[in-house]
């Protein structure tokens, strides 16, 4: 009698994986930046760099820096900042907030205020508590949900392509929290 589905005991084969988990998150950030419009004066001018600030996730900052080296984002050169405290987030166009900042989230959002900064995080409940894009896991894959109102309040316009792929995080399927 043949039974299968999961290979051997506890060993789930890694199916055709080409990117690591950090690289997948970096890929999402890169794409989010491409499909959001900044208001006039909100984005970088001329040949000024597009600034990505990574708060509390040095591994993600390293992956972004490595993957975007020599590349342009929205026609601008890219600057990735590995930020450890609130001082460093000024001047950022895209801000990633690491899970470690969950308890001080309101401080971070207060510091940004109404400036056109695209905030992305995997903190549970981010979208709906002031954040714009929440990245979450559904099983072994990433999904994202977008709070459009939080974006438009800051003058950011999210493209319909990005909106069509966003899905609200299901309450039941918490996926992999850690």
């Amino acid at each position: 009698m043949a039974l299968c589905a999961i290979a051997l005991a506890a060993f789930t084969p890694v199916a055709g994986q080409q990117l690591s988990e950090v690289e997948v998150r970096a890929g999402f950030l890169y794409n989010f930046a491409r499909f959001v419009e900044w208001p006039p004066g909100g984005g970088p001018e001329g040949d000024r760099p597009f600034v990505i600030a990574v708060l509390g996730d040095p591994e993600l900052a390293r992956a972004l820096r490595a993957g975007l080296a020599g590349k342009r984002l929205r026609g601008h050169p890219v600057e990735v900042r590995d930020v450890r405290d609130l001082q460093g987030i000024g001047g950022a166009h895209l801000l990633w907030i690491g899970k470690g900042w969950q308890r001080r989230l309101h401080e971070v959002l207060h510091r940004i205020g109404e400036r056109p900064v695209l905030t992305v995080s995997d903190i549970p409940g981010f979208a709906g508590h002031g954040g714009i894009i929440e990245l979450y896991r559904l099983g072994s894959r990433f999904r994202f949900s977008i709070d459009e109102r939080a974006a438009s309040t800051r003058g950011l316009r999210v493209s319909s392509r990005l909106l069509s792929l966003s899905r609200p995080r299901p309450a039941a399927a918490r996926g992999e929290g850690t």
Partner: peptide, 15 residues
């Protein structure tokens, strides 16, 4: 990772 589309990223399995 810049050569992956959004759809492809959403398909990638992460353990």
């Amino acid at each position: 990772f810049t050569s992956f589309s959004l759809e492809e990223l959403m398909e990638t399995e992460v353990t």
